[in-house]
């Protein structure tokens, strides 16, 4: 366990859910991130999920599978799963996406965020992690008329978060990634890097501050 008990902090503004207006984001494309070759334009994943939901559209599902299954697999392997287990779980996660497509709400989360939460739950079972109680369900919004603008905003926020993450210094980004993989506790990272535990915690804090700052810098003013 690696938590400390800093006195209750005034919460910072969340990364997402911030006012966002249309702006030219061409110059914000990831630079130097060689790990995943990102397409020039990401397809509208939310639209694909809605095709799966409304028409059981297999072509849309295949597109989602090709993009997300390898990422879920990588996430699980980095979390300590064997390749075989990660492969099996990634298929489960994609099958869950098919089954639960009607629960997806693009106004609340991007598809990447949603897939992450499904993968997280699958990982709890697969790697025998502690149960994770979920908060109360949020009430559903008015069903038929989806707010396109809001969904677009959520997607753009998520894209900017990814860009900000990619632009973090390598070491800071690695700390955040490892926190999510949970492959090592902070004390193990401390033993491995020779850094004191307090230093690791403050570096993660700094990394988060920097992420927020980059999000602020990039947020076009309305």
């Amino acid at each position: 366990m690696m938590l400390d008990a800093t006195q209750t902090e005034k919460p910072d503004a969340p990364f997402a859910l911030r006012p966002y207006g249309a702006g030219d984001r061409q110059d914000l494309r990831r630079k130097g991130n060689v790990r995943v070759t990102s397409d020039a334009e990401q397809p509208d994943w939310a639209a694909q999920v809605y095709l799966v939901r409304d028409r059981q559209d297999k072509a849309a599902f295949a597109a989602l599978f090709r993009h997300f299954a390898p990422r879920v697999k990588a996430f699980l392997m980095k979390s300590g799963a064997s390749e075989a287990l990660a492969e099996e779980c990634a298929q489960d996660v994609m099958a869950t996406l098919w089954q639960k497509a009607h629960l997806f709400d693009a106004e609340r989360a991007s598809v990447a965020t949603w897939v992450f939460t499904i993968a997280r739950n699958r990982r709890i079972d697969a790697l025998r992690k502690s149960r994770r109680p979920e908060p109360e369900d949020l009430p559903w919004g008015p069903e038929p008329e989806r707010d396109q603008a809001e969904a677009l905003e959520v997607q753009q926020e998520t894209d900017r978060l990814g860009e900000a993450l990619a632009q973090l210094p390598v070491k800071q980004r690695a700390l955040i990634e490892r926190a999510y993989y949970g492959d090592l506790s902070h004390s193990e990272i401390a033993a491995e890097t020779g850094l004191p535990l307090g230093t690791i915690k403050s570096r993660i804090r700094l990394a988060l501050e920097r992420l927020r700052h980059q999000m602020d810098v990039k947020a076009p003013q309305r």
Partner: peptide, 30 residues
């Protein structure tokens, strides 16, 4: 809201790495 932002960060972390699925996995899943 902050918690949902940390879920989004998890999604961004996941987006950044990919490991190829084995052959036939899409067909099996379909």
């Amino acid at each position: 809201a902050r918690s949902m932002a940390f879920d989004a960060l998890g999604g961004a972390v996941m987006e950044d790495h990919a490991v190829e699925m084995s052959e036939g996995s899409l067909a099996a899943c379909l």
